Simulated assay, not measured.
Amino acid sequence: MAKKKQMLLIINPRSGREKIRLKLLDILDAYTGAGYQVQVHVTQKALDARNAVLKYGAKKDLIVCSGGDGTLNEVISGMMELAKPVSLGYIPAGSTNDFASSLRLPRQMMPAALNAVNGSPYAIDIGHFCEDRYFVYVAGFGAFTEVSYLTPQDKKNLLGHQAYILEGVKSLASIKSYSMKISCPEETLEGEFIYGMVTNTVSVGGFKGLVNQNVALNDGLFEVLLIRTPKTPLELSSIVTGLLLREEEKSDLVYKFKTNRLTIHTQEPVDWVLDGEFGGTRTDVVIQNLPQQILMLCPPAADTQKHAEKTENNENNC
């Protein structure tokens, strides 16, 4: 008898209205039928998923996680510390699932679960944040980092990414401004900034369109968006206009560029968000792209292309 392949299945039972509970037996049956011996770990607290990967992951042939972007972040953070690479399958079960959207993973739980064992390996870049943290798709600071995760999805769909900015700015007086020096191999910026994000995704907080550049998840580069502090309502309007510009079109208040490394120094401590979760308070930050670090199991390229064309056609018809 052939030796069974070993799987670690990590489940966040509280993600996405606990949908995994209704499908868990079907998922386990499918994985057993696919020749896996499954070890299930149900997370109980913060960092539990990361610690489970560190404790059990090295002896597995495949790690599958079910949860939201925060759970995925923990699992990949643990995998980055393993001595040998292990492939990763993902069953998105959170409320936002930004990175799953970028990977064109199925939205329904059973198709996603089957893709987690039958998909094609796709090597993705990972972000290294300072000395001790990782992020999968976004590191951000400033005025709008919480808004993206608090705004209802139907409102996002209706109003688009201009509303994302306006929702976060109830009045100019409410904007927190940070004095920063931001450096990368391509340029150095200094001054007052209200927002910044370093991304490797097509969707942030459920919004598509915040990153206007062509995004590749395995090119060794991040997409960076930085917004200077507006002084007047007219400048605030200019920011919204600047967000609509393509990368090659310049704005005095909005900067968009690609880079593989970024250093940020601030005069006062700044709160950071990593993949939708609190990432710490820091005055000095170094962000580096680690190319093609994790093998994700994704839909075949042909299916991905069809999905992309269907999505584009639906958006054009809206």
Rank of each mutant, 00 (worst) to 15 (best):
T263M: 09
T283Q: 14
K208H: 08
V40R: 06
S148H: 01
I239G: 00
L262W: 00
L295W: 12
T43F: 00
E81Q: 15
N115W: 00
K55R: 15
T229S: 10
T229K: 14
G160Q: 05
T229R: 10
G220I: 11
G78V: 07
E247V: 00
K231C: 04
G89C: 02
L189K: 06
S238Y: 03
D271R: 15
N212W: 00
A308F: 11
F99E: 00
K181T: 15
G168L: 10
K23R: 12
N316P: 07
E187C: 11
N313G: 07
R50N: 10
N316C: 14
I10W: 01
V64K: 01
I227T: 01
A83D: 15
N200D: 05
V285C: 10
T145H: 01
R50Q: 13
Q153R: 12
L221F: 04
C130Q: 09
E268T: 12
S174N: 11
S171L: 09
K256L: 00
P300N: 13
L245Y: 01
L225Q: 01
G242E: 00
A58E: 08
I287T: 05
A112C: 04
E192H: 08
R261C: 12
L88P: 00
K60T: 12
P233F: 03
E146Q: 15
V215S: 06
G70T: 03
P269A: 07
K84A: 14
E186Y: 07
I194H: 06
K258S: 08
K156N: 10
A216Y: 14
V273F: 08
N218M: 08
Q37L: 12
L72W: 02
L243Y: 02
L225M: 09
N12S: 08
A46T: 06
T71D: 03
Q293I: 06
E131K: 15
Q293D: 02
N12F: 08
E18C: 14
M296D: 05
E18A: 15
K4C: 12
S174V: 08
Y195K: 04
H307E: 13
K23F: 12
